[in-house]
Design a protein around this nucleic acid. Sequence first.
RNA 1: GGAGGCGUGGUGUAGUGGUUAACACACCGGUCUGUCACACCGGAGAUCGCGGGUUCAAUUCCCGUCGCCUCCGCCA
Length: 638
Amino acid sequence: MAGLPGEPLPLARPREVEAETSAARAGGPAPDWQRSDFCGTLRAADEGKVVVLDGWVQRIRDHGQLVFLDLRDRTGVVQVTCDASRTPEVHAVVRDLKPESVVAVRGRVRRRAPGAENPRMATGEIEVEPERLLVLAAAKTPPFPIGAHAPGEVDERLRLRHRYLDLRRPEMFAHLVLRHRFVKAARDFFDARGFLEIETPMLTRSTPEGARDFLVPSRLEPGSFYALPQSPQLFKQLLMVAGVERYVQFVRCFRDEDLRADRQPEHTQIDVEMSFVTQEDVLATMEAMMIHALGAVGRRPPGPFRRMSYREAIDRYGSDKPDLRFGLAIADLGPAAAGLPFPPFAKALGEGGSVRALVVPGGARLSRREIEGLAEEARERGASGLVWLAGGPDGWRGPLARPLAEAGDDAAARFLAALREGLAGPDGEAAGGLEGSLALLVAGPAEAASAALGHIRLRLAERLSLVPDGRDAFVWVTDFPMFEWNEEESRWDAKHHPFTAPHEEDLDALLTDPGRVRAHAYDLVWNGVELGSGSLRIHRRDVQERVFRAIGLGDEEAREKFGFLLEAFEYGVPPHGGMALGLDRIAMLVAGAATIREVIAFPKSASGADPLTGAPAAVDPSQLLPLGIEVRRGAPKA
RNA sequence: GGAGGCGUGGUGUAGUGGUUAACACACCGGUCUGUCACACCGGAGAUCGCGGGUUCAAUUCCCGUCGCCUCCGCCA
C-alpha cells in the first residue's frame, strides 16, 4: 500500500550539477546518473547489482571510519554504508551531509554481514556500497522531525506551514496514495458502467438555498458576482435534460461556513446523476461503487448495507446518522411509564409526548457523578431532564427507585417488562436480566427525547467501549422528510433541496400537511459519519410547482432563481436522480484519521486560513478598483 | 456569534509569586569500522504568545488581545 513505483522515470541531470560535484569524485569518465531503482524496493535478490538511487537523507550514523546513511524516497528507506578505507571521497562528503538533503548515489547492492541484518526494515537484508555520491540540494535543518520515528504530535500550525515537509512523513504520503487509489478505483467503476465524467463551472450563480456562498467579483460587470459552487446540483440535472444519462464528477465544492474537524471550506465530492432510474438503482450503484473502491484500499465492507428509514433512525438512535457498530437502541416505554407515580412521566404522556430510555447493560457501575454528567448533557441537548434507575444486587437505586416501589405490583411489573424489552434492543442482541444494568429515561416530546438520548448513547459507547475493534457498519437512511420547519422564518424549508421528489402516496399532503411528506431522499452513513446524500428529482411540472408553493416560493421568485432549470424541464426531462459522497470523509475514515485535514494535501486551519500561503490576504487597492469594490475597515463580521 | 482547552529554547514536554527556568530529542564541536531512534564526551540555544493590571517582586495571579484545537450555533 505504501509506494507505487512502476519504472523509474528518466531524469536528465543538469550539466552544472555534474560540474560542481565532479571535484568530489575521483577522475575518470562521468558515470551514468540515470536513476535505476527505488530505495524501498531493493532486496537480497538484487545482490551485486549496480544501482543509481535518488532520495532524501533520512539519517546519518557516523562511526568515524564507517558512516551509515539512510536514504529515503517515497518507496522506503535503504542503508548506504560508506567505508573510509574503500571510498574516501564519498565518506568525506557523507560525514558533512545534513538530514533532508537531496542526493544521488551510485553504488553496488550487497548482502549485509551476518548478524548485521535488520529484520524491521524491508530492505534490511542488504545495503548499498556507494562508489559516487552527488549532493543535488543541501537542506536546512527542518523545523520539526521528519523521519519514521518522529516522536509525539507536532503543532499542527507548524505542520501546515511546512506542509511539504509534513507530507514527506510516510504516514502522510500513505494518505495521498490511499486517496489516489480510491479515486482511481471509483473512476474505473463508473467508466465501466457507462458514466461520463463531465466538468461543470466553478464560476457560477449564487442561489439562495443552503450554505453561504463564496463570491467572486466580476470585472466585466462591476457590482455583479459569481459564486463558487456548493455543489453542481443544477448543472448535473441539466446534463440529464441534455441526454447524458449517466454523469459522474470528482468535483470541488465550496461552502462559506465555519469549519470543523470533518468540514473544510472546500471539499471534494463524488457527484453522480442518472436518468431513467429508481431509487433502488441509485442505491445499488453507489453501494457497488463503495464496495469496489474500498476494496482497492484494502477494506472489505460487510454488504449488503443495512437500510433504515429516517423515522426509525430518529426513534431508535436519536440521529439521522446512526452509528450501528453497537446496539443500545432507544426504547419507547409508552404506556408502561404511565403506571409509575412520577408526575413528569404523566405530564409528558398527557401532552402527547413520550417516555424514552436507554437501557444500558452493565451501566449500573457508572458513578452517580458520571450519570449526573450525562443528565447535564441531556439537558444541554434540549431534554427537560434525565432520570435513572440502576439495578443492583440489593434492589433499585436512583430517582425512580421510590416511584417504582410505590407503584402497584402490576404497574411495576409492566414497567420492568418494558425496560427488559429495551435492554434486548430491536435485534434482541443483548438479552439478560436487568441486574447491573442502568436505565436512563427522558420524558417529553418524542423527537427531543430521542435526540437527547441519541447523544447520550454515543457518550456511553465511548465511556463503556461498546464499539468492537475493527467493526464497520454502513447504513442507508431513507425516506427523509421532504420539509423541515424553519422556526425563525415561520415556514417550511426543503430539507434536502426543492428539486427532491416526494413519495407518490404523500403528494396529497404537500400543501395540507407538509411535515408528513416523505421524500425520495437518502443518506449513506458509515460508523455514524454521514458520507453523503442524494435523491430522486422532481420531473413533473405540477409537482415542482406545489413544492415551491409549500416552501412559500412564489412563481415569479421561482422563475427568477431557478428559471433556467424550469425552462430546461419544459423541453423533455427524463426521470432522474443521484447522489454525492464526500471523498475527504471517506478517506479520513479509511485512514483512521481524526480529522479531514490529515487526508487533504493542503488544508485550511479551523479559522479558514492557510498557514503555508498566508491566504486569505489583503489585496492591493489597484486590484479592487476595476471591480468597483471598496473595503470598509471595521465592517461588522457576519 | 457562543463555550471550553492550549500557548515555556528549533521540536515535544516539566515547573515555580522570589537569586541560575528543568528534561528529552534536534542542532554545533569532538571520539569511535557494523550501526539502524548508534553510543560516549563537550557546547550553544528561551524577552515563558502579545498588551495591561495587582504586587516590593509576575513566566506563575487577574483582565484584555492574538493564534491554534475541539464543540454548540451555522453547514449536507
